[in-house]
């Protein structure tokens, strides 16, 4: 049994079937990258794992626990599974520090003082302790996204989901975010990320899954997927990525 098991998951938005019986597994301390064309279901899958979307059939298990379907304590689940979004989604009316301490103090009931110290330690780590009292608007995109990652980390999740977190960034800001991910990967953080950063996927991922048509079309270690893709679709996708100069 893997750490995260996604089995035959189907997700429909009305008549539109986005996930069509998808299967996926992630081991502990693994970094798994989801690649594929827009609309293939990468983001939807992540949102389903976090319980932000209900699934229509199939099941998702974390550590052997079923985390999909009725009777699941979503708030408890979300304490264990963090997610970071493409558009950062920081709370604009709170300072950076408040953004980070809100969930630990309110959800985990960590004392204010302790939560603040831990948040400051996290900010120091990403070199933003001087921005603790700043508001999100006053930060660059890269800084905001790093704060968003740290906000998720403050809950000490077992699994971190990352939904195209560099797609909304200016190119020169991407590396600061990817460097943070690299560090997290080295520390053994279990991560599942939807990404268009093929170079990063190649370097950091333990496994790459190519999503197409709502299922995992092809999966394997990055060397294999990027050098030796078996299926026609995967080859086509990678060709267009190479043409765009992204690999």
């Amino acid at each position: 049994m893997s750490f995260l098991e996604v089995r035959e998951v189907v997700k429909r938005f009305g008549a539109n079937e986005v996930l069509r019986g998808i299967n996926l597994s992630v081991e502990e301390h693994q970094v798994v990258c989801l690649i594929g064309p827009s609309g293939c279901g990468k983001s939807t899958l992540l949102r389903c794992i976090n319980g932000l979307e209900e699934i229509q059939s199939g099941e998702i298990r974390l550590h052997g626990d079923r985390i999909s379907g009725p009777g699941v304590d979503l708030n408890a689940l979300r304490r264990e599974v963090g997610i970071v979004f493409q558009s950062f989604n920081l709370f604009p009316h709170m300072t950076v520090l408040q953004n980070i301490t809100l969930a630990p103090t309110q959800v985990l009931r960590v004392p204010e003082e302790e939560a603040r110290e831990r948040a400051m330690a996290l900010l120091r780590r990403i070199g933003l302790e001087h921005k603790a009292q700043a508001y999100p608007d006053q930060l660059s995109g890269g800084q905001q996204q790093r704060v968003a990652i740290v906000r998720a980390l403050a809950m000490e999740p077992m699994l971190l989901l990352l939904d195209e977190i560099t797609s909304a960034l200016d190119p020169e800001l991407v590396s600061e975010v990817l460097n943070l991910l690299r560090e997290l990967a080295e520390e053994g953080m279990t991560m599942l990320l939807a990404t268009h950063e093929m170079g990063f996927a190649k370097e950091v991922a333990d496994k790459v899954c190519f999503l197409y048509g709502g299922v995992v079309h092809e999966e394997g270690p990055p060397e294999e997927i990027f050098k030796n893709p078996k299926s026609e679709r995967t080859q086509q996708f990678l060709r267009s990525i190479i043409e765009a100069g992204r690999l």
Binding site: L52, R78, N89, L102, Q106
Partner: peptide
Amino acid sequence: PSQWAAARSLGLSYGQ
């Protein structure tokens, strides 16, 4: 809605 998603994904309840 992304503000809802961000808050709920951190484990905050509906009321919180």
